[in-house]
């Protein structure tokens, strides 16, 4: 009897896990928050690449960061749904006050980017923190990954470097409702790898 109960529990556990994973992946709410602090890797956001343009990640008790030596560098974000906007919060040090931009790729496999200048804001300690809003309606979202570019075009020429301490992206869409359920299911299915 106990053996049978354990087996039933195990089967129900895997069914519940599947439903839970599908629910989280579908993003029924308004927001999806993706964090990368360089101390721990995030399954939703890849490490910066290519490696030869970056110094290795430095991990200290005060936090972790990575220095950009050449430009541009990329990272990919796994977006399980189609989103309307994204709010990017970036913590950085730009001591040389270099031109510094960030943005998503507009068309897949094309060199077209929706780049926005990261302008100096009020400083919190050694770091500067800036928030930028992106309208993603014209950005290609048919693939499971969304590529982002961080650019500082004169970095190598001026022999400067930019230190990035954290990136947080809040993706936003409409909350799941009876009105948009078919549209959101279609958007979700579009993300299936082809």
């Amino acid at each position: 009897m106990i053996v049978r109960l354990v087996k039933i529990f195990l089967i129900l556990f895997f069914i519940a896990l599947t439903v839970w994973l599908l629910w989280f992946d579908f993003v029924p709410g308004k927001n999806l928050v993706v964090n990368y602090d360089f101390c721990t890797t995030s399954p939703m956001l890849t490490e910066f690449s290519p490696g030869d343009r970056l110094w290795p990640v430095e991990k200290t008790q005060e936090g972790c960061w990575q220095k950009m030596a050449k430009s541009p560098v990329y990272f990919d974000v796994r977006t399980p749904q189609v989103f309307k906007t994204a709010e990017v919060e970036i913590k950085y040090k730009n001591l040389g006050e270099e031109k510094f931009q960030i943005g998503p790729q507009i068309i897949k496999n094309e060199w077209q980017w929706f780049l926005v200048d990261i302008l100096p804001t009020e400083q919190t300690g050694e770091w500067q923190v800036v928030k930028i809003n992106f309208n993603l309606e014209n950005v290609y979202q048919g693939a499971p990954m969304m590529r982002w570019l961080v650019s500082a075009p004169n970095l190598e020429q001026n022999q400067q470097s930019i230190v990035i301490g954290a990136i947080k992206i809040v993706f936003q869409k409409d909350r799941l409702s009876f009105v948009n359920v078919t549209e959101q299911i279609k958007n979700y299915l579009r993300k299936i790898k082809r």
């Binding site: 599908l22 992946d25 790898k193």
Partner: peptide
């Protein structure tokens, strides 16, 4: 499931 839709399982 992960092969069909990347990230569905491994994100969580």
């Amino acid at each position: 499931l992960e092969l069909i839709k990347e990230g569905l399982v491994s994100n969580h």
